[in-house]
Simulated assay, not measured.
Amino acid sequence: MIRNTLVSVCLLTGLLACSNEKALDNPSRGSIVVTADESLRPLVTQLTSAYSGIYPDAHFTVVFKPEQEAINQMLKDSARIVFASRPLRPNEQAVLNQKKIKGATTKIATDGVALIINRANTDSLITMSQLQGIFAGQISQWSQLKGGNQPGPITLVFDNDNSSNLDFVLTKFNVKDVKGLRIFTTRSNREVIEFVRKNPSALGFIGVNWISDGDEPLTAELSRDLRVMGVSDKPNPEKRADYYQPFQEDLGMMRYPLRRPVYVLSRETHPGLGGGLVNYVVRDAGSLIIYKLGLWPTIPYNREVNLTK
């Protein structure tokens, strides 16, 4: 009987240990690793910092990587949640399924890939058909674009070989092979900006949240000496109003052709800190931060105003 009692105590202790392991964090307390595509750095930095400001016992270790690497880190259980521009692919979801983890995918915002050029380049308008021609290898010189004043070839500049920016554009224009394209990759969106600032022949692709926060001094610094191109999905636009830039209203009204969603992908299996952050973003004041950054939140923040006589 004594032996049976000891076995029962051990089993109970083991169950409590498992329970405590799962309860190491909750929506307002604990420490988790968050990964995110580097193009979303300003957004993710402000969201996690704001949440930690509300809950001082909530700690996020945020790791910025190219999107594919960020997702892989979450699948390997080296991160709890990931901010990305796409949901999990079937083969990636299968990794969680094998571990009997359902996971969760939550759309939090509409973002855009901004096309930036050097201020010396006066050709600030481009069509989707022209971009298709560039990525098909049919257009390679600035002189082939209407209104271009730059000589020489168009250099396409991205932040990383595995970034969400590059993946999104290649998918958008159905590019299977980039060997014939003049593509240059850096190590970050900021380096793309610096490269374009120094090279008038460059066409850079960055996450719009890097240059759309009007209250952030860094935004003004990064935007200096750059132009953000207007993009039209009309093959033969007749006026300036046919072109749209990747800023808030045109993202929300679905007018900017290179818009994309922002998701939070989670492997969390209990009501934890990751879920608390996601709820803050989609149901609380986190959407105000998304507004501030010039993006379009999936669920707008509901402001209530009481008027008294």
Results as ranks from 00 to 15, higher is better:
Lys107Arg: 13
Phe83Ala: 00
Thr186Trp: 10
Ser223Thr: 05
Leu125Ile: 06
Ile116Pro: 00
Phe247Tyr: 11
Arg260Gln: 09
Val305Ala: 09
Gln93Met: 09
Lys179His: 10
Ala23Pro: 05
Asp77Phe: 15
Ile32Gly: 01
Thr35Met: 02
Glu249Val: 14
Ile54Met: 09
Val9Thr: 08
Ile134Ser: 04
Gly147Arg: 07
Arg240Gln: 15
Arg283Thr: 09
His59Ser: 11
Met74Cys: 07
Val95Arg: 03
Ile290Ala: 06
Ala79Thr: 06
Asn306Ile: 12
Ser124Leu: 03
Gly275Val: 08
Phe173Thr: 06
Leu96Pro: 03
Ile81Ser: 02
Pro261Lys: 06
Thr45Tyr: 07
Leu88Pro: 03
Asp177Tyr: 01
Cys18Asn: 15
Asp242Ile: 01
Gln150Gly: 05
Lys107Glu: 13
Ile117Trp: 04
Asn209Val: 08
Ala241Asp: 13
Asn209His: 08
Ile290Asn: 01
Leu145Thr: 06
Phe184Ser: 13
Pro217Glu: 00
Thr122Pro: 12
Val82Pro: 04
Ser78Gly: 13
Leu96Lys: 01
Asp77Trp: 14
Leu222Tyr: 04
Arg3Asp: 13
Thr308Asn: 14
Ala58His: 07
Ile108Val: 11
Thr35Ile: 06
Tyr51Gly: 07
Ala70Gly: 11
Arg119Gln: 09
Arg283Pro: 06
Arg227Asp: 12
Phe158Glu: 02
Leu170Tyr: 04
Asp177Gly: 05
Ile81Gly: 03
Asp77Ala: 14
Leu12Val: 13
Ile117Pro: 01
Asn189Lys: 04
Ile211Arg: 01
Asn149Cys: 01
Arg119Ser: 10
Asp111Gln: 02
Arg255Gly: 10
Thr186Asp: 14
Glu238Leu: 03
Thr48Pro: 02
Met254Phe: 12
Asn149Trp: 11
Tyr55Arg: 12
Pro42Tyr: 08
Glu304Ser: 15
Thr48Ser: 06
Ser85Cys: 10
Leu16Gly: 13
Lys172Trp: 10
Ala84Trp: 00
Met128Val: 08
Lys292Tyr: 02
Pro87Val: 11
Pro151His: 13
